[in-house]
Lab assay of single mutants.
Amino acid sequence: DETGKELVLVLYDYQEKSPREVTIKKGDILTLLNSTNKDWWKIEVNDRQGFVPAAYLKKLD
């Protein structure tokens, strides 16, 4: 059920640097789980959840 889920576009590649982070690729469109922290957003990638720098993402309307 995708209702109410926010999507984000990945602006730059990011390689995870800790187990709490996930790797993302430029151009991916992913589900945003939590954006309350202005610097690190929690997203879902391939059934994995983790954090990436918010500056690497853009919210889609």
Results as ranks from 00 to 15, higher is better:
L32K: 01
L30S: 03
L30Q: 06
I29Y: 05
P19S: 11
E16L: 08
L32E: 00
D1V: 14
Q15K: 13
K42M: 15
V45C: 11
A55G: 10
K58V: 12
P19L: 08
S18R: 10
S35K: 07
S18K: 08
K58C: 14
L57V: 08
E44Q: 12
D39I: 14
W41Q: 00
V52Y: 01
V10N: 00
D1S: 14
K42P: 01
L7Y: 15
P19F: 07
Y56Q: 05
L30G: 15
L30N: 07
Q49G: 05
L11P: 00
K17P: 04
L11I: 08
L30F: 08
L30R: 13
Q49S: 11
I29A: 02
Y12T: 08
N37V: 05
N46Y: 13
E21Y: 04
D13T: 05
A55H: 13
D1Q: 13
S35Q: 09
G4P: 15
V10W: 01
P19T: 10
S35I: 04
K17Q: 15
E44V: 10
E44T: 07
V52M: 01
D1L: 14
P53K: 03
E16Q: 11
V45G: 07
D1K: 12
R48I: 08
K58Q: 12
P19E: 12
V22C: 09
E2A: 13
R48Y: 05
F51I: 07
L30W: 15
T31H: 12
T3K: 14
K5P: 13
E2R: 09
Y14W: 08
Y14N: 00
A54S: 13
P53A: 02
L32C: 09
D47Y: 09
F51K: 02
N37G: 09
G27L: 02
R48E: 06
L60C: 09
D28S: 11
L30K: 03
N37T: 06
P53G: 01
I24A: 05
D47A: 09
A55R: 14
Y14P: 01
V8K: 00
E2S: 15
E44R: 09
V45N: 07
V10D: 00
V22M: 07
K5I: 14
A54L: 02
A55I: 11
V10Q: 00
T23E: 03
N34C: 11
E2M: 14
A54M: 04
